[in-house]
Design a protein around this nucleic acid. Structure first.
Lengths: 189, 189
DNA sequence: TCAGAAGATGTTAGTCACTAACATCGTAGC
DNA sequence: GCTACGATGTTAGTGACTAACATCTTCTGA
């Protein structure tokens, strides 16, 4: 049974992530050392780094990217790139949003308010953008497609910022629609 | 004469920056320690940190932001936000480009190819975006304005990436125009 | 069933970015 | 010349992250 190993590893990973999130929210990101997270999860600090390459990854290792790509592929190719990405983002995030609104808000808030995490988040967008560009273009993405993918992610990020700015008072899907509407309306301005 | 002091400080700062850039290009960013940069500039490693708060800042402490804001203000307010930002970016960067093309290419290449620097660059865009949003909107910027400012910066960044991707073969101002054209053409597609 | 392979974890000792406290030393003004 | 000040150096830390090696558990094959 290699399953036993896998399950135990998954549990350790989850425990590390939970304790990290808890301590970050409780004492702040910078004030929480990796050693302390590891201790709270009952492992040594070396084990932490075997599960997460950096302290940042314990917050940012989501895997929404494949979900997004799938959501794009599910949309009719007759739509333009922006519309497709808009729809995919709204639907894809909508699922997570409906299931886990509070957890999502907490994580996004932490990520957007901690400089070190915010920097890494942007860095991640780099990779996400390439995936999006490839997903909306059959074959090799052009410069124009990459620009549009970047631009859509910028709009999405603005929506997320707005969401945490007033502490989740508004509905995220609405903000996403607002952001893409602003993008479309700004066309000839 | 407090001038003497100021001049000496400016020289030290410049020497640190020059040596840092040289060593980064020569041996890579990660492989170059702050201590080594300081030694090359003839100061102790503590002095380095008195001039630059982090190792990243020695590369990224440009001050193009005020220049950009001024360029926006110089444009007629009758233009829409995107057009204004586009023009300002092209003109503002055009000046630096004409004066120092090679140095700019080297710095942008280093910044976009080093993960740590790339992350910080994105983080800087955060601040730039707020300045842009404020500059194009008389008074408090709206959500829509912030979205457009983000989006313009995303387009600009794509142009810079494309520029370094083929090692500066194309002309940066042309790429910027291309990026904004892609933005305008694809916005509602 | 038992010996050893394989994989996960702990321990220890390091490197490097960055900080704080204090000493030093040259210059500036009296 | 004496003193106050500003820039610099020194030293001793902290904390993220790495590498080398020991240990312990689980799985495998005779």
């Amino acid at each position: 049974m290699a399953d036993w190993r896998e399950r135990k590893k998954a549990l350790t990973r989850q425990r590390l992530q939970e304790q990290a999130l808890r301590l970050f929210v409780e004492h702040g990101y910078e004030a929480t050392t990796v050693a302390r997270i590891a201790a709270a999860a009952g492992v040594s600090h070396m084990t932490f780094f075997r599960y997460f390459p950096t302290k940042e990854d314990v917050v940012l290792s989501d895997s929404y990217d494949p979900l997004l790509v799938a959501a794009i592929r599910a949309r009719p190719a007759t739509e333009g790139p922006v519309t497709r990405i808009h729809g995919a983002v709204r639907d894809g995030l909508g699922v997570i949003y409906a299931a886990d609104r509070d957890a999502l808000l907490e994580r996004v808030r932490l990520a957007l308010r901690t400089p070190a995490l915010r920097a890494r988040l942007w860095e991640n967008q780099f990779a996400t953008r390439d995936l999006l560009a490839e997903a909306v273009s059959e074959g090799a993405p052009t410069f124009g497609t990459r620009v549009l993918a970047s631009v859509c992610l910028a709009a999405l990020t603005s929506a997320l910022e707005e969401w945490v700015a007033d502490d989740g008072a508004a509905e995220l899907p609405d903000l996403i629609d607002d952001a893409f509407r602003a993008l479309a309306d700004g066309r000839s301005t």
